[in-house]
């Protein structure tokens, strides 16, 4: 028996909807606009319910939903990329990526960090390469454990750790956090503080 009876999908549906807010926030953070975020979240739920049979009962539903959402976002981004605006194409024509690589010039990432510091987090996230942005968002926005992030992204935990670390380092530089004057708070006290603010609503 595969477990899904007529009643179970209803329960499954209700459990899945509990994560709507969290999924929407993640989609918004990745795509940066309300319409696209809503589109991909709707698509995600339809896919999830259509393939509810594939979900293993007893496992955590959130990483499963997150995987579907990330795949949907990826498809969406590809679709948009296949129809780039003329402006974006003009920009690309002038860029000689090969020459950049050959003469050891800074990577676009490094140039970005040098170009402007002190931007806000929303702007910085838009500039963060996808491969390090997603682990960051899954940790900071979704509160997922390393294990769940690894499962959602189908990556080894070590890779998740290193990407997360790269993301934080990149964002700290973009936000000019090196110039912050905040006082050191010991880890034990930070946990209490996070406990007050955090929570995955």
């Amino acid at each position: 028996m595969n477990g899904w009876t007529v009643d179970v999908p209803k329960a499954f549906e209700e459990t899945a909807y509990k994560y709507l807010k969290r999924l929407y926030r993640l989609a918004y953070a990745r795509l940066g606009n309300v319409e696209d975020a809503e589109d991909v979240v709707q698509e995600t739920y339809l896919k999830a319910f259509r393939h509810a049979d594939n979900f293993r009962q007893g496992s955590n539903i959130e990483p499963w939903l997150v995987t579907i959402l990330l795949n949907t976002i990826r498809d969406h981004v590809r679709r948009v990329a296949r129809n780039p605006s003329p402006v974006a194409l003009d920009g690309l024509e002038d860029t000689d990526f090969i020459a950049e690589l050959a003469d050891g010039r800074d990577t676009p990432e490094e140039e970005l960090v040098k170009s402007e510091v002190g931007v806000d987090l929303e702007t910085a996230l838009k500039e963060t390469p996808e491969w390090m942005l997603t682990p960051f968002l899954l940790r900071e926005f979704q509160d997922l454990s390393y294990k769940d992030i690894a499962q959602s992204l189908n990556l080894p935990i070590g890779t998740v750790m290193s990407r997360l670390s790269r993301a934080r380092s990149f964002l700290s530089k973009r936000l000019a956090l090196s110039s912050i004057s905040e006082k050191y708070v010991s880890p034990s006290r930070v946990k209490e503080k996070i406990g007050d603010q955090g929570g995955a609503s």
Binding site: L171, I180, Y184
Partner: peptide
């Protein structure tokens, strides 16, 4: 460490 906490708070 302080940078990590500051970034987290902004997030």
């Amino acid at each position: 460490w302080t940078k990590l906490t500051a970034l987290h708070e902004q997030a």
